[in-house]
Design a protein around this nucleic acid. Structure first.
Lengths: 223, 223
DNA sequence: ACAATAGTGTCTGTTAGACAGTATTCA
DNA sequence: TGAATACTGTCTAACAGACACTATTGT
């Protein structure tokens, strides 16, 4: 007797920053189980079209939301007998980061909604599908663990941004104010950002920067 | 047409320290594919007996080697169409740490062998099954990334150990010598270790310590 | 001129690391 | 008494963080 194979899915915890508050993107499920409940963007791995699990995550995002995230990384795999009523199920969990500008036009259109998780997962609606509240927790924990010594947070911003904008994003994710002079020094010393012209809003114009490609960790933590 | 389900396995990268050198435990595969090649301890997830993927990893270790590792953590999931000739396959990779004393008696008996990976994966035999060389690389990278700010390395030592012994283990894993006075200070300040009598060998006897349960990260990195 | 935001210079307390020196055992 | 190992005290250079100050725009 060969044992039944488990179900294999990918789930993407798509995070963004809305006015200094961390938000997660969820869609209502259109099928049982958990029909109508809020769920992460995800789906089955398709053995005939996906070359690997990251491709499956990207295909899902492109299929449902028609965009590629600025950042995508694997968080962990949640796999057990009880998380899915259909049977033993493994979900490969991905963390995706994206500037809110791209996401806002998609709300309503695809049923997508952004939920405030700046205070953790507790504030989310009750009707979340599967163990998705837990998956979101895990992804946020990963983000916060990496934030202080990586440029991850920059992926919440558009391609080009100023140092004060970056600082506000870091403060939102890490949940603490930082000294502007010291923040600036660390960012510039990290050599992970390159000049990209000037940015104008109210007050004195600021130097704009973009991420240097392929680097992403600080030698010293930001906080 | 429902697409074929992928294969789901767990693979355990079981590491130990042999005379100050990192080693990985491998077993020869007794079945095709890759029959006779060296492979990680691992196997299929059994939906009828495993409650989750960590249980599957533990069952595999107990079944093949009859022991529970001192430390077990999930590293990542390697999932793609080409890693297994039988078809689309996902392997949930676990890192296990164990003092060598438990492992040595198992070599030969179960066909288990310890391979030196202190210089990386390059020194391993050519006939490694699947993508196991890559999985070993990933697990070692995880260990080294966490080592400097966690007590992970202590799991290479017996339950009770001295600070100089711990220092040697850290030096082996991190690949650099450390100052004994400063190392001692950091370890004691971390409050992650509690007194456990005295240890006698040559020279002055040393205080013995054991890990405090449930804690495992330093507030500041060791290096 | 003033509000608003960007950016700089400098001081200070803390800490990591270096190193010299002391302590306790065994042969 | 000397070799071997464990452990302690202290100095210093580097750095994180605080903060006062200057710069550049729009109204």
């Amino acid at each position: 007797m060969t044992p039944l194979k488990p179900i294999l899915t990918v789930d993407v915890v798509l995070l963004t920053l809305v006015q200094g508050r961390l938000h997660v993107a969820l869609m209502p499920r259109d099928k049982a189980p958990y029909q109508g409940h809020w769920a992460l963007v995800g789906g089955y791995v398709h053995v005939d079209e996906d070359t690997d699990s990251a491709s499956a995550a990207l295909r899902t995002l492109k299929g449902k939301l028609h965009f590629e995230p600025r950042h995508l990384e694997q968080v962990c795999t949640q796999a057990n007998a009880t998380r899915d009523p259909r049977g033993w199920s493994a979900s490969i969990v991905y963390l995706a980061l994206q500037p809110v500008e791209v996401l806002t036009p998609l709300t309503d259109q695809a049923g997508l909604q952004l939920f405030d998780v700046s205070g953790g997962v507790a504030g989310l609606p009750d009707n979340l599908a599967f163990d998705h509240a837990e998956l979101i927790s895990l992804a946020i924990a990963r983000l916060q663990a990496k934030a202080a010594y990586s440029t991850l947070v920059a992926y919440f911003l558009p391609d080009v941004f100023t140092i004060p904008e970056l600082q506000k994003a870091y403060e939102s994710v890490l949940g603490q104010k930082m000294n502007a002079a010291n923040f600036r020094r660390k960012i510039l010393e990290s050599a992970q950002f390159q000049l990209a012209g000037m940015a104008h809003s109210t007050g004195r114009p600021a130097q704009a920067y973009r991420l240097v490609p392929y680097l992403e960790t600080f030698t010293r933590a930001l906080v």
